[in-house]
Design a protein around this nucleic acid. Structure first.
Lengths: 349, 349
DNA sequence: CTGTTAGCGCCTTCAG
DNA sequence: CTGAAGGCGCTAACAG
């Protein structure tokens, strides 16, 4: 009915109502309000109704920050740092994470580390300041990782997702990179290819190393030597990958097949191969790690090592909540490696 | 050096250190600690050093929740609800938003509304409880939107992103849907097409309506009647879009061109057209709203109405911070419509 | 330059 | 069944 009842002490923003305000409005004590809000037992129905009416009228929302101050209370927050949310892969990961967190009644605080360890450190510090109950980090992989050490986290559990960090002994969820790369490469070798190129991102990236390892392993097991001049790492985006492969295809003795270690490199490879095919070059066989939408419509024959980013996020959250809910009190750090699936997109044109 | 100095009252988690703890460790009063932490002026260098050492030793992090309790202080949080973060479009949007928020020293709390108005309402309520300073919402578009009304938000500014909500008069950032759809359709009509199909999502989606409006407008301006039997709405995913277009292409008098109103429908359309082409059908011209990676490698000739999701997120955040920082104190609600770019991927095969 | 007091919003503990 | 007191961690305002 009435307009703004001028509460003293307000500046610009009307200042959110407090239990006090609700109590006055309902003509009860703050405690009664609190009890009603906590789904209280033992409150006279009439009072309860009055309180609920007051809450609705004032658009009251319990101050969670104040609440989390009380001993024993939790913030309901999980801190998440991602290296680049614009990468659809990590977007899926976040979704898996958020879903599980929501199911456990938690909210996620998200920050982009942008592959920058300093930023990551800052994000983690900020999250700790906000008293997150746990952390999920896609590590940016700098050399200096003491901000991820359990000691620095004051007992707040951490789960690493997608990449491990050497020397940081915490729960970690990975894709089975080595196996995926090995099987993909083995497939190419079994098809008879003897000059197989490798396209990957910089080796400081954990997954880059593991996938190259799988590549080498497959060669060793097949008794085929790795052609070192065909191994190109350091392409962080599709454009440089395209450039790198284009150069390789112009060699006197070019590769007949390519294993690309990630999404970005696969996209660049497709472009390079499509361009080469347009000029009448011989076909080049491509096998890429990571899938992507429309992979099945690729203009060049393609197989992929597919895996489920959403599942990865969900599992990371799962490990975290096992810690938080005491299901796994102080078990040693666990390592989960998610399976991969080899998929063909050969287009029988 | 020493192990855990057993502080009384701890349960399981060691309980994060407080200013008190730091003060004791440094042999000063809590106030001095507080001053040092606030980049204090007027603290004797020696004390400052002692405090800093204690902070490092204890891995102390200021409790932001307690801090935000003090009058005048802000939470440093912005609440964000997105309808589906796994959609790369919204992932980009989040990135733009997060970037700008970080630049303003704010963190984002992200929730997935999953296109569910009830979930959205719950998220907003939770965010308000955490005393976010502002909200950015990609509205899920249910009928009942009073939880987005300024009155319900208690003065917390809200910016709508990507979609508007009828009756909710707040800052809004949109893509120029009508113009994009109109120009795309006009292009098709100018090329001589007279039977142009429309594929879109359900019309309760705000953008769906606007894009259909543009489609109709172009027809009206060209003096070409819309062929109602070729207008198909309600496809929420690529599979149903493919199915819908396949059916249209089997008509006695099939469309010669298709305008698809979004990403998902375009992907489905590509599949349907590619399949049709494989059976020797006549070529079908395709124009889609939204771009996507590898659009240029589409196996069927394609043009797209491109626009920048990241920019959209950044602009939404920009509007929000203008409110928060008082640059635009209480200006009336503003509407920003971001431009689109028409792009051809015709592949001169 | 440093310390003491008090209170932000909430809820556990204890009285009534 | 309801209310009063006290304290969670922090920092303005006011001594000293």
């Amino acid at each position: 009915m009435d307009q703004t009842a001028a509460r003293p002490g307000r500046r610009r923003r009307p200042a959110a109502p407090t239990v006090q305000d609700v109590a006055v409005e309902a003509g009860v004590s703050p405690m009664t309000v609190s009890r009603v809000l906590s789904g209280a037992a033992h409150v006279r129905p009439e009072l309860r109704a009055r309180v609920e009416a007051a809450v609705a009228k004032l658009d009251y929302h319990r101050n969670e920050n104040a609440r989390s101050l009380r001993p024993g209370h939790r913030s309901g927050l999980v801190g998440v740092t991602i290296t680049n949310i614009a990468n659809p892969y990590y977007a899926e990961l976040q979704r898996g994470l958020e879903e599980v967190a929501a199911r456990h009644g938690r909210r996620i605080l998200v920050g982009n580390s942008n592959e920058d360890p300093a930023l990551e450190r800052q994000l983690v510090a900020d999250f700790l300041g906000r008293r997150v109950e746990g952390l999920v980090v896609v590590p940016s992989g700098g050399p200096d990782a003491d901000h991820l050490q359990p000691a620095a986290l004051g007992g707040v559990p951490l789960v690493l997702a997608s990449r491990a960090v050497p020397g940081v002994d915490v729960d970690t969820v990975l894709v089975d990179d080595v196996r995926g790369a090995r099987e993909a490469t083995a497939t190419l070798l079994a098809e008879g290819h003897r000059r197989v190129a490798f396209l990957g991102h910089r080796l400081s990236a954990f997954t880059g190393q593991r996938r190259l390892e799988g590549f080498r392993l497959a060669h060793a097991q097949a008794g085929v030597p790795v052609v070192d001049e065909l191994v190109r790492v350091g392409q962080q985006d599709a454009a440089s990958a395209q450039q790198a492969l284009t150069a390789l295809l112009e060699l006197d003795d070019p590769p007949t097949a390519v294993f690309s270690a990630n999404n970005r490199n696969t996209v660049g490879a497709i472009r390079a191969i499509a361009a080469r095919a347009a000029t009448g070059g011989p076909p080049v066989r491509l096998f890429g790690f990571d899938s992507f939408e429309l992979a099945d419509l690729s203009p060049v024959a393609l197989s992929v090592v597919d895996h489920d980013a959403r599942e990865l996020g969900a599992r990371a959250a799962g490990l975290l909540f096992e810690r938080l809910e005491g299901t796994v009190p102080r078990a040693p750090a666990r390592l989960v490696e998610l399976p991969v699936v080899l998929r063909e997109h050969l287009r029988d044109r």
